[in-house]
């Protein structure tokens, strides 16, 4: 019989405990940083938030009043860009994963999608200005801004759609084909319902990305100050991230508008959080419907 060293079990346990504690401390410190940011912004911003702040126009060179046009503008931009990017992205993802044959073209499309995800957002902004604002003549408008933001979110949505579809076991597809179902029917009735909760994750990521971006809207839609709310897709709009940037760097009286800047940041975070919660709700709703044992 072999005799194992006596202390081996205690050592194993100790090593394991050390490794887990390191992992635990690291993950908690990330959480801590997140809470610090939130706390910092909330502490300085919460004071200015009241009904007027949410529902009034900015006044006195944006040192007083509310931020309603920026809230409305951001909501428009997020909504419009997702209306454009989500269907296009999901359809592209379906094409890449379900229809495109393995080979050079598919690899190229996937590579380009990845490259697109790595393009700096200011480049999207310049491209949007050149194409949508000037070439297509939309002018600086919600339409041009939403299209630019949609391009930015597209690779995220394509990638998550692709990954979600890839995660659907082939046996479901085969069972459907074996019953004489067409490929389209199989995708619509079997594959998509299974993949949908994960596809929604792409939407959540897209919303998060789009609502916080400043660079892509800089030349395509964002206005320094507007005395009224946008009336159509062809109007310019104010937006929360840009408003934050403006009143922190080039306002008429930066010191006086400092609290408003923090208030704006709080609202921006709450809007992103709210949209994420909504998307999560939708996700878990569908997830329950297709829950596996």
């Amino acid at each position: 019989m072999i005799s194992f060293p006596k202390q081996v079990d205690r050592e194993k346990r100790l090593h394991q405990a050390i490794a887990f504690w390191i992992a635990r401390i690291i993950s908690y410190s990330i959480l801590l940083i997140l809470f610090l940011i939130l706390f910092f912004i909330l502490k300085r911003g919460i004071g200015v938030i009241n009904w007027e702040f949410l529902t009034a126009m900015p006044i006195d060179g944006m040192t007083k009043g509310g931020i309603l046009p920026a809230i409305v503008g951001t909501l428009y931009l997020v909504l419009m860009s997702m209306i454009i990017a989500f269907p296009v992205g999901v359809l592209s993802g379906i094409y890449v994963n379900e229809y495109a044959k393995e080979g050079a073209i598919k690899q190229f499309v996937k590579m380009m999608t990845n490259n697109l995800a790595g393009v700096p957002s200011i480049v999207f902004g310049l491209f949007g200005m050149a194409l949508f604002v000037n070439r297509l003549g939309f002018g600086a408008s919600i339409l041009a801004g939403s299209l630019t933001l949609a391009l930015l979110a597209l690779p995220l949505i394509i990638r998550t759609t692709e990954e979600s579809l890839k995660a659907v076991d082939d046996t479901f597809r085969h069972a459907s084909y074996a019953l004489g179902a067409s490929k389209l029917r199989t995708i619509r009735k079997v594959v998509l319902p299974i993949a949908f909760p994960n596809i929604i994750t792409g939407l959540i990521l897209g919303i998060g990305r789009v609502s916080g971006e400043t660079a892509p809207i800089l030349f395509t839609v964002a206005a320094y100050f507007l005395p009224k709310l946008p009336q159509s897709l062809f109007d310019q709009a104010m937006a929360l991230p840009y408003h934050l940037y403006v009143i922190s760097t080039s306002g008429t009286n930066i010191q006086a508008s400092r609290p408003i800047a923090y208030g704006t940041a709080v609202i921006l975070i709450l809007i992103v959080l709210g949209m994420n919660l909504l998307a999560n709700f939708v996700r878990s709703h569908y997830s329950r419907k297709v829950k596996m044992k």
Partner: peptide, 19 residues
């Protein structure tokens, strides 16, 4: 498709649809 109507198939792992 008509052939597959005539020839049914059952797979190794139970794979009911999420319905």
């Amino acid at each position: 498709d008509r052939l597959r109507r005539k020839v049914g198939m059952v797979f190794q792992k139970p794979n009911p649809f999420p319905k």
